[in-house]
Design a protein around this nucleic acid. Structure first.
Lengths: 192, 192
DNA sequence: TCGATTGTCTAGCGGTGCTAGGATCCGGGT
DNA sequence: ACCCGGATCCTAGCACCGCTAGACAATCGA
């Protein structure tokens, strides 16, 4: 039995290698450069091996997205818990979110821009995605204001952050005013 | 001389046909389906003809984007001018913007999601893009609030709208609450 | 030790954006 | 009226893409 277990371990290890390599390559040269041929070469296996782990490239993107969701949730929670007061917690959350998007553009794309074959905002949504939204809700739900549904407020705030993140990174917004825009958003949206 | 003029006209007409066909195909089947081969077949010319008008696929996307920018600016101005009072004008703008994104997803993608090779937020930004931003600024600049730069406020509001538009259309946000999220955004961000 | 199963690779399919080079057509000068 | 030269367009092909069939080798259980 231990032989099978070793093989299983090695197989799981190789799967992690695939995801990590895809992520690394995407961060270095963009997702367009993540082709199955290049990816296979980097992990020193042939192309078909990828398809014994994932249905296709889309699922690899999805795996990177799930990894990123967990990290994003962690970053948001860490930033929020290190801040004092509701207003400051929301500001810290916004900064952490935008910082994550700026520092991990490829992962952010996998999460919210590309098609990773994941279900969002549904019952069968993967746990890491639900948890990332929950991390936002924990902080933002407290500043929704009277009569405003916490979930709805979180969705709106998140949408606003997402818009700033993508437009800034795509060069649609001048990057030098990013912090002032964030501050404006926090001041106006959050009810403290 | 008139022969040359006729040829120029026909050439310009064919260029419009290419852009219109690309847009139509993209709205029908998504940008992935807009391949140079399919596009060439639809306009009943061979592939290389496309390259005598545009440097490549990217420039075709850019042309669709510019067309869309003009329409978006028009839609926003029309909606705003038909509304009474600053608060209602902002709400009408937001509805018009999101409506445009929902009704013309491919064009919206060409504008803000895909790479059309256009320069944004710079001096050499094409006029239609500047004008679309100007259309937002005309309305939103008036509700920025004291001490807040109108341009910065417009950028922030636009970013928020963009986030809601993309997340909703990508299935990241439940569509049924779209209007409530928009209303929340308008109420909190606009100072009337 | 043998047979079966599992694992991996080579080779190839149909598709992509893009381009080189040859054919064809047509206006303008003699 | 004719023929030349340039503009115009198409056929064919390049390198690459995601993905897969089928051959081959290595390994396990009997």
């Amino acid at each position: 039995m231990s032989v099978q277990e070793r093989k299983q371990r090695e197989r799981a290890e190789r799967e992690r290698l695939i995801v990590a390599t895809a992520r690394e390559l995407a961060e270095q040269q963009g997702w367009d450069a993540v082709t199955t041929r290049r990816l296979a070469e980097r992990i020193e296996y042939s192309q078909p091996v990828l398809y014994s782990h994932f249905r296709g490239k889309r699922e690899i993107i999805g795996a990177v997205a799930l990894e990123g969701a967990a990290e994003l949730a962690g970053a948001v929670r860490a930033a929020a818990s290190a801040a004092d007061g509701p207003r400051e917690r929301v500001a810290a959350l916004a900064r952490a979110y935008l910082d994550f998007a700026a520092r991990n553009p490829a992962v952010y794309d996998a999460l919210f821009q590309l098609d990773g074959g994941l279900a969002y905002a549904r019952e069968d949504t993967p746990e890491p995605l639900k948890d990332a939204f929950a991390a936002l809700l924990e902080v933002l739900g407290g500043v929704a204001g009277d009569g405003v549904h916490p979930g709805l407020f979180t969705e709106t705030f998140w949408g606003a952050l997402h818009g700033l993140a993508t437009l800034t990174r795509a060069g649609r917004l001048p990057p030098e005013d990013a912090e002032r825009r964030t501050a404006l958003l926090v001041d106006r949206l959050a009810v403290v």
